[in-house]
Amino acid sequence: MNTLSKKNATPLISAKKLTCIREERLLFDELSLQINPGDIVQVEGPNGSGKTSLLRILSGLSQPYDGKIFYKEQLISRCREEFHQNLLYFGHLSGVKGEMTAEENLDFNLALHGYNTEDSLANLAKVNLSGFEDSLASHLSAGQHRRIALARLYQSTVPIWILDEPFTAIDKQGVASLEQLFTLHAQRGGCVILTTHQDLISIKPEQIKKITLDYSYDSALD
């Protein structure tokens, strides 16, 4: 129905000629990409190939060595606040504070990004944490930490999701539920950019676009 409009839609994120150098090693060079509403993009590659670096650059956390990133055809440095209002970044580190309870952690995360916190209990239940709302996060497991951070996804209405290894330490059931959520998010016009070493099971392969980064040993800069 609105496939046509999607084709003509402006890309949510586009990058032009990104170059990333870390520790005197060229990770990628002249990488250009365009991510439209409805895309699920999986960034693949072996460890150390620059997946996290790419996601951090796309989210504006890191600066590329060279190249530009656009949000709806605007440079992200020019529209930082608007871009961040439309971005959800989930990094390697879950950003969960051990001194706060599960609910307080989620509430803070939601409020920081401008959401109301009324539904946070329901969202914790969605990630199988009902009963743990009042437990200090330091008493919970690594997987539960990730779940607290991921609970935000269930309430998020922002179009751009950038997720770095969202499935780490999450059990099979949780992964399936997250995959469903990604499909739903793509259907309602958002985009998901994620890295994972697992295959996405419940998302149709033709729905997934892949960016493959190679790791090469001889790419050290002299």
Partner: peptide
């Protein structure tokens, strides 16, 4: 040799199957 495989920027592969009830994402 910072090879990067071609990124599949195909036309929107995804058929829009969004049911009308799901909230549309605009500039949130």
């Amino acid at each position: 040799v910072g090879k990067i495989d071609k990124i599949l920027i195909d036309e929107a592969l995804i058929e829009s199957t969004a049911n009308d009830s799901s909230p549309l994402i605009s500039s949130a």
